[in-house]
Simulated assay, not measured.
Amino acid sequence: MSQRELTILGTSGQVPTRYRNHNGYLLKWDKQGFLFDPGEGIQRQMIYANVSTSAITKIFITHFHGDHCLGLAGLSQRISLDKVAHPIEIYYPVSGQEFYERLRKSTIFHDVAHIVDCPVSQEGVIFEDEQFVITAKQLSHSVDTFGYRIQEKDGRTMLPNKLAEYNVKGPSIGALQRDGYLEVDGKRIAVEDVSVLRRGQSMAFVMDTRVCQAAADLAENVDLLVCEATYLKQHSVEAKDRGHLTAEQAATIAKNANVRKVVLSHFSQRYPHTDLILQEAKSVFDHVHVAKDCEKIPMPKRQK
């Protein structure tokens, strides 16, 4: 059975608080584990949230401010210590290559992990296989910053009654899915004859940005948007100056982009509680969730 859920490993902005760790978000998507912005303290947060390094298959870093990447130093070593067998790809802005290399080799350790460096130099598709298309867009922050979108390709759900009607069974089902058609008893069977369209799901990660078109483009029609909401609207001038969003602005992006659910995070330490953040966002958009450290949030159910 597939499992698609977001584990929140940290929700703080630049300064952690007693109850909020630096950033960290793991999206478990069937056999994939997409880790976004591993901040300082990520290893302990993973233990609290019952997440293992072997669950990670790709790491995405939006930019090289410390609260979004300092955890990579320890995590790199932990991946080797745990002897994670599969390759792990790390995507990051190419302009931060120097910082990336420092984090990856910050101290002496026995490096046996299969880490694949994937520097992002421009907007567009950064990964594609038979299941996913992953794109990056440049956001509007004080340093070079990318947001990411994961788009599952459309597929098809096979209908057992139709397969039986056309006498398609066993390995022939796989061949039909792969090739799109099959000859059975002299009759050509198309995959559309025995299946229905299954819409691909999508997720966007927008962290540390002012309001910009790239944020809207990444969020367009996604099932799940993880978005920063560093400030309340009373501090909107400071938000713009420092390259951040208010809760109202984040909710407006989600509403205008037809997002199904938005998860807000990256809160300034000046707000000890998030009640006002939720209230401000909810005044704009109903489908808002304010993240808490170590909680698990299911992906919205697939739309038909």
Rank of each mutant, 00 (worst) to 15 (best):
M1L: 01
Q3H: 14
I8R: 07
L9P: 00
G10S: 04
G10W: 01
S12V: 00
S12C: 09
G13V: 09
G13A: 11
Q14C: 13
Y19A: 14
R20P: 05
N21C: 07
N21G: 02
N21P: 04
H22S: 11
G24I: 01
Y25G: 03
W29P: 00
D30A: 12
D30S: 12
Q32G: 02
G33I: 06
L35F: 06
L35P: 01
G39S: 05
I42Y: 03
I42D: 02
I42S: 02
I42W: 09
M46V: 03
I47V: 15
I56E: 01
I56P: 03
F60E: 02
I61S: 07
T62F: 03
F64A: 03
H68V: 05
A73H: 03
S76A: 12
S80V: 04
L81C: 10
K83P: 08
V84I: 14
V94G: 06
S95D: 09
E98G: 05
L103P: 10
K105Y: 13
T107P: 00
T107A: 13
I108W: 13
V112T: 15
A113Y: 07
V116N: 00
V116W: 05
C118F: 01
P119Y: 07
G124W: 06
V125Y: 00
Q131C: 01
Q131P: 02
V133M: 10
T135Q: 12
S140D: 15
H141R: 12
H141Q: 07
V143H: 00
D144I: 11
T145H: 09
I150W: 10
Q151H: 09
G155I: 04
T157C: 14
L159C: 07
K169W: 00
G170R: 05
G170Q: 02
A175N: 14
L176V: 08
Q177V: 15
D179P: 00
D179C: 06
V191T: 04
E192Q: 10
R198N: 06
G200H: 05
S202W: 00
S202V: 03
A204L: 07
F205S: 08
V206W: 04
V206F: 07
V206H: 00
T209E: 01
T209L: 06
R210S: 10
C212R: 05
A214D: 02
A214P: 06
A216F: 13
L218C: 05
D223E: 00
E228W: 04
Y231W: 08
Y231F: 13
L232D: 02
K233W: 10
A239R: 04
A239L: 06
A239M: 08
D241G: 02
D241W: 00
D241A: 13
L245K: 03
E248H: 08
Q249P: 03
Q249V: 03
T252E: 10
K255S: 01
K255M: 10
N256E: 12
N258D: 04
V262P: 01
V263C: 05
V263P: 04
V263F: 03
S268A: 15
S268K: 06
Q269C: 15
Y271W: 12
T274E: 13
I277L: 11
E280H: 10
S283F: 14
V284T: 13
F285L: 11
V288Q: 09
H289T: 15
H289M: 14
A291K: 07
A291P: 01
E295K: 04
K296Y: 02
I297Q: 09
I297W: 06
P300H: 06
K301L: 12
